[in-house]
Design a protein around this nucleic acid. Structure first.
Lengths: 342, 342
DNA sequence: GCCGCTGACTAAAGCGGTTTATCTGACCGC
DNA sequence: GCGGTCAGATAAACCGCTTTAGTCAGCGGC
């Protein structure tokens, strides 16, 4: 039915149901002022012609876009290699879809990040944005505030500049990791950090350092691996050249850890015999390296869902409480073992 | 300036420039019928109040959303592990951003895939969609055609049901791989395939089989690795248990190949001494495994850009020519070597 | 001096909904 | 019999821009 013609509008439905367009609108927005009988008649008429309110029209008259924005500022390579985003986005979608909302994705080169947010705000194409990968001295909280754009920071509560945050603490996992290594007899535990500008990379590093102190161990060497395979490899090479050599390395993420394992093996070191390795993320691949990678797992999907949920609250109520999700936990596998000579 | 108040509208600009709203519209849409002087005055007035046409309003009156849609139907885990999507999306964005368009991302569970497309069409929130991960007997080409929704298939031209396609041929890479292995003396070359329902997985398998025939070799064993680490690992275990054991495996993608290497090593086989391994994708990690992975690289970013470009053409002109991008090429590394005993 | 034309610009009608103010009876109490 | 209330429904304004159909002044031609 409904053949080829134009798409039906609210007027068609109104005509068919023998009411005014406003009545149809009321019916579809669950507003009072309509008898149950009329309401039912309208809904069935709409169904008969296959009508659904146009998002665009609704967006215009309500001033709401019905969509959230997510701007990814990482280098494309890093985004791709990181399982975080897709899982996170899937989580976000799970709550958006339920509401019939959409997700506007933007991949921006760092240089035009601000412009991207401005455009999003100017276009009014989204009702709010999620801010991920919070950086040290990040300009975005101030920017979205200035743009009067509802936003939620996905990450550290302390640095979200007055915005609401949804955080998942990665520190306990790093503390656990160091603790685990210390108990295995390691005394020289290095860290291969993420890009220094990322707040979460910094936090991981701090957690590692604090855990060393707590375990009564000296601070170990820190190198930057940039969250990438290449960076992890380079850092690992440098660490292996040190004297004394560290016997364990805590990497900021799995990608650099996996590369680290490869480099160590290539250089003739046994993992974990000569070098214990810990990652972070629990990439699908982590359980399928040789040896299998000790790493930490978090519920990223839920993180995305809660972030979206919270952003909705901010959009509707203007504000929302900070949320702290269950911290990630360490999964022990075979890339960690007793310190050599013990 | 412009202080807190409401966002300026076209009327504000018109008033400031001393013209009618239509004149402003004309100025911003590069239409004739305005003197250069007036045009300039309008533009400067707009700049002064920081006005930009509202996307939503424009979308409503022009009947164009100014956005493209991308529905990902894979399992979230697979999406995350695959560097394809983020790179592809970055490529898409590169042309969208230039036009001030947006990308509407949808992650759908397989069961509600059709519903997602219908919603996208009903909402008129996108002007067209990109169809990736074409499956065997894929219902989507017919679906979007029925929904009268402009679409471009990212993949195989033969199975795109009358839609325009943008393809990047992966067969040459698989042919190269088999050829390379044959030249190294391998005679039992297995394949760990992607999910059978994916057209590109099937095509890779066919390319592998054809290359074996061309090299005068018998068909080798085929197992499904599902593009995942876990699947790759399981398939590899089975292959290693065969008698006679294959001496080389061509995996459908890097993820399963990397897992395969780990499993082989775990089982005491040397790579490439006992088993040569080839992947596909050239994941960032491929150059940082031990041994480094022989795999194939394609220009995914460009693929995304061209796909978006093409979809725009389809939206505007109703159709566009099929596009064939440069096929991927094999990168030789150390995971492939002479067949054992040779 | 009248006509037709053209270039520059505007008024007003959409686009497809939402929302506010208004209208219409029916019902109620006195 | 009359004012008041209220549920049920509607007309009309509005969201902010695009676009079509004019309007109007100026100008050349005859």
């Amino acid at each position: 039915m409904a053949a080829a013609g134009k798409r039906p509008t609210i007027a068609d439905v109104a005509r068919l149901a023998g009411v005014s367009p406003s009545a149809v609108s009321f019916a579809f927005n669950n507003r009072p002022g309509l008898s149950d009988e009329t309401r039912a008649r309208i809904l069935s008429a709409a169904e008969r012609v296959g009508w659904q309110p146009s998002r665009t029209a609704r967006a215009l008259s309500r001033g709401r876009a019905g969509a959230l924005g997510l701007v990814l500022t990482r280098e494309p390579e890093l985004i791709g290699a990181d399982p975080f985003f897709s899982t996170f986005i899937a989580g976000v979608e799970s709550v958006l879809t339920a509401r019939g909302h959409g997700l506007m994705l933007n991949v921006a080169a760092p240089a035009q990040e601000a412009a991207t947010y401005r455009r999003l705000a100017a276009d009014r194409r989204v009702d709010g944005v999620l801010i991920t990968d919070l950086r040290v001295g990040d300009p975005r909280p101030a920017l979205v505030t200035a743009l009067r754009m509802p936003a939620v920071v996905v990450g550290d509560r302390e640095f979200c500049g007055g915005l609401c945050s949804v955080d998942l603490d990665d520190r306990p996992a790093f503390a656990e990791a160091v603790d685990h290594l210390a108990r295995l007899g390691h005394r020289r535990i290095a860290h291969v950090a993420g890009p220094a500008e990322f707040r979460h990379a910094q936090r991981r590093r701090e957690a590692w350092a604090a855990a060393l102190t707590a375990a009564g161990l000296p601070q170990g060497p820190v190198l930057t691996g940039g969250f990438s395979a290449e960076g992890g490899a380079r850092a690992t090479r440098e660490l292996l050249a040190l004297t004394p050599r560290p016997t364990a390395v805590v990497y900021a993420n799995d990608l650099s850890a996996i590369a680290g394992i490869a480099v160590a093996q290539e250089a003739g070191f046994a993992v974990p015999g000569d070098l214990s390795v810990v990652g972070y993320d629990d990439t699908p691949l982590a359980a399928y390296t040789h040896p299998r990678l000790t790493t930490a797992r978090a519920d990223i999907h839920r993180w995305g869902a809660v972030a979206a949920q919270t952003l909705h609250t901010v959009i509707e109520r203007g504000t929302a409480p900070h949320v702290a999700l269950d911290p990630s936990t360490l999964t022990l596998r075979e890339s960690t073992g007793p310190a050599p000579g013990r």
